[in-house]
């Protein structure tokens, strides 16, 4: 396990995408972790007299219309994005992976049923459905996590199934079958570990998509609710002040774009490093 990690890492250091994406991703996670121990100013503090300040020594990136520190809100927003995207991936993995494994091991109508259901879910514009879910169950961070998570399920199910089908063709699986192991046990002991690289790569990509979706939902006012900070919500509030304080609309957007860019680059690099067979033209 440790050797594999070292191997991946040393290969990765030669990959431009892996390095650039990795640095951005680590910075983003570092920022989020930082929020647990320190942030420049508590974001619950409303200080109207300091509202809409330009960047200065006290407030490095200035303040918003409530006088809250933009930098602190960005840091809290990073934490919020990570939690939402992370749990949503957890939902996708937790339900999607077993579904994909079952589809690949059972084949036949079980497979057909799971895959058609997948196609169907994917055909629906996911944001529309997420909006429906959050609107009906009420806006909020938890419901937006569920809404985003639900759309991770078919993605992971499909990816795992595809990888698992290839592994089921391998001879060591045949050997395991002939030694009398059940399909479920083989799926868990042999198939699942061999799908880990595709899963890790897909998770990175879904992480980026999750961050974009969370930002979209909170921009519409359906995601994270105040006083918690969220990058999407910050953009929504900034829109009112575009004429007086356009910089408010710049920072959170840059934070989203940079994070998503970093994660996507990292995912691309990781795919090249983990599995040269998956290498695409880029």
């Amino acid at each position: 396990m440790y050797e594999r990690f070292v191997e991946v890492f040393s290969h990765g250091m030669k990959n431009r995408n892996f390095v650039a994406g990795g640095i951005i991703t680590i910075a983003f996670f570092g920022l989020a972790l930082l929020s647990y121990v320190w942030s420049p100013h508590p974001i619950e503090n409303i200080n109207i007299s300091d509202k809409l300040l330009s960047p200065n020594a006290k407030y490095l990136l200035g303040t918003d219309h409530f006088g809250r520190d933009i930098l602190s809100m960005l840091i809290m927003g990073a934490k919020n994005s990570i939690i939402v995207a992370f749990v949503a991936i957890g939902i996708g993995l937790g339900i999607g992976v077993p579904l994909g494994l079952v589809a690949a091991s059972q084949r036949g109508w079980t497979d057909e049923f799971i895959m058609r259901f997948n196609d169907f879910t994917l055909a629906f514009p996911s944001l529309i459905s997420a909006i429906m879910i959050t609107a009906i169950m009420g806006p909020g961070a938890v419901n937006s996590i569920i809404a985003i998570g639900i759309f991770n399920i078919p993605v992971f199910a499909r990816v795992v199934r595809g990888a698992a089908l290839n592994i089921w063709k391998k001879e060591f699986i045949l050997a395991a079958l002939s030694s009398g192991k059940s399909k479920t046990r083989i799926s868990i002991e042999h198939v699942l570990p061999n799908t880990s690289s595709v899963l890790i790569v897909q998770a990175t990509i879904q992480f980026a998509i999750g961050i974009l979706a969370e930002a979209g939902l909170s921009y519409l006012g359906l995601g994270t609710q105040p006083p918690a900070a969220s990058w999407g919500k910050m953009l929504n509030e900034a829109q009112t002040f575009l004429h007086f304080a356009p910089q408010l609309a710049i920072y959170p957007g840059m934070a989203i774009a940079l994070t998503v860019l970093g994660l996507n680059l990292f995912g691309d690099g990781l795919r090249d490093v983990l599995d040269p067979k998956l290498r695409r033209n880029r």
């Binding site: 980026a208 974009l212 930002a215 979209g216 921009y219 953009l235 900034a238 829109q239 575009l242 004429h243 356009p246 609309a249 710049i250 959170p252 957007g253 989203i256 774009a257 940079l258 998503v260 860019l261 996507n264 680059l265 880029r282």
Partner: peptide, 26 residues
């Protein structure tokens, strides 16, 4: 071209919309 593509994928469309408003309208 690939840089353009990576940026285009990473930038949320509503933020891009705000940037367009800031530039072309404001």
């Amino acid at each position: 071209v690939m840089i353009f593509s990576q940026l285009g994928i990473a930038i949320p469309n509503f933020w891009f919309a705000l940037l367009l408003i800031i530039f072309f309208s404001v």
